[in-house]
C-alpha cells in the first residue's frame, strides 16, 4: 500500500499550548488563590480583632501546629494507619467481589443487596453498634472506614468489568481466548478508568470514615487518632489546636487526592479521554 497522505499524529505544540493548560499555570493559580484566601482570613481576624477561641488566625494555627506537632504526630499516624488499611482492604475486597460478581450473575443477585444496605446506611448510624460488637477499638474504626470505602470500589469495578466493548468481546471469542486471557487483556484494562474513579472517591471516604467513626467511638488513650485530638481540644476550648488537628486531616485528604490523580495520570494518561490534556 502506498502512502495515503492521511492526517497522522498532530504536530506537537502546533499553535502553542493554551495558557490555562500549562503546567506551571495549573499549579500557580490554585496555590495563589489559596494563599489569597489565607491572607484575607488573617486580615479579617486581625482587623475585626476576633478572639482566638472563636476564630484563630492562620498564623496562630501554624504556630500551634508547630508547637504541638510532637503530640499530634502519633494521632496523625494512627489516623493514617486506619485510613490506608481500610482503603487497602476496600480495594482487595471490592475488586475481588467485583470479579466474582462480573463473572457470575447469581453471586450478584445474592450479594449485591448486602452491599447496597451497607452503602445507603450512614456510617455514623452503624458506628455505635460496631463499637459495641467489636471488642477492639482499632478493629471497629477500621471496619467503619472500610464500610464507606468499599462500595465505590465494588460498584465502579463491576461497571468497569462490564463496560468492555462488545465487538472486542466478540473478537476475543472469535480467537478463542481463554477466560484468563479475556480478563487480563480485555476486562481489566477496560475496567481501569472506572476502578480509578472509584479509588479517588474511596480514598476520601476512607479518611472520612476513619475520622467519623472515631468521633462516634469517643476513643481515648494512646491508640487514638486526630478525631480524638479535635474532641479533646474542643472540650478544653483550645480552638487553635482544633484547627491544627483539622489542618492535618485536610492535608491527608489533599495528599490522597493528589496521589490518586497522579496514579490516574500514570495509568490512563496515554490512552483514556478522562486524562486527555492535548489539543484535538
Amino acid at each position: 500500500m502506498a502512502e495515503r497522505g492521511e492526517p497522522g499524529r498532530a504536530a506537537p505544540g502546533a499553535g502553542g499550548t493554551p495558557l490555562v493548560r500549562r503546567r506551571w499555570v495549573r499549579i500557580a493559580v490554585p496555590l495563589a488563590a489559596f494563599l489569597l484566601a489565607l491572607a484575607a482570613w488573617e486580615a479579617v481576624v486581625r482587623i475585626a480583632q476576633i478572639p482566638h477561641y472563636i476564630l484563630p488566625a492562620p498564623s496562630l494555627i501554624a504556630a500551634t501546629l508547630r508547637d504541638n506537632f510532637g503530640s499530634l504526630l502519633p494521632s496523625w499516624l494512627y489516623t493514617l494507619k486506619i485510613t490506608f488499611l481500610a482503603l487497602l482492604l476496600a480495594v482487595a475486597g471490592g475488586v475481588l467481589l467485583a470479579l466474582v460478581i462480573a463473572l457470575n450473575e447469581w453471586v450478584e443477585l445474592g450479594l449485591f443487596p448486602f452491599a447496597v444496605v451497607l452503602q445507603v446506611t450512614p456510617v455514623i448510624a452503624i458506628a455505635p453498634l460496631i463499637i459495641i460488637f467489636v471488642p477492639s477499638t482499632t478493629a471497629a474504626l477500621l471496619l467503619c472506614a472500610w464500610i464507606v470505602a468499599f462500595f465505590p470500589i465494588l460498584s465502579n469495578t463491576v461497571i468497569g468489568l462490564r463496560s468492555a466493548d462488545l465487538n472486542l468481546r466478540d473478537l476475543y471469542r472469535l480467537y478463542r481466548a481463554s477466560p484468563w486471557q479475556t480478563l487480563r487483556l480485555l476486562l481489566i484494562p477496560s475496567a481501569m478508568p472506572y476502578f480509578i474513579a472509584g479509588l479517588k472517591v474511596a480514598g476520601g471516604l476512607s479518611l472520612i470514615g476513619a475520622v467519623v467513626a472515631e468521633f462516634t467511638a469517643g476513643a481515648a488513650g494512646k491508640e487514638t487518632g486526630l478525631a480524638s485530638r479535635i474532641l479533646e481540644a474542643s472540650f478544653r476550648t483550645e480552638i487553635p489546636k482544633m484547627f491544627a488537628a483539622l489542618v492535618l486531616v485536610s492535608l491527608t485528604g489533599i495528599a490522597i487526592h493528589l496521589a490518586f490523580n497522579l496514579l490516574s495520570r500514570l495509568v490512563l494518561g496515554h490512552w483514556h479521554e478522562s486524562e486527555s490534556r492535548g489539543e484535538r
Partner: peptide, 21 residues
C-alpha cells in the same frame, strides 16, 4: 468500527490474534 484496544499500542493491537494463540 475499528474496534481497537485504546490502551494498547498499534503493535499490541495487531499482535493480539497471535498473542491469544
Amino acid at each position: 468500527e475499528p474496534t481497537l484496544m485504546p490502551w494498547a499500542t498499534v503493535f499490541d493491537n495487531v499482535w493480539l490474534p497471535l498473542r491469544l494463540a
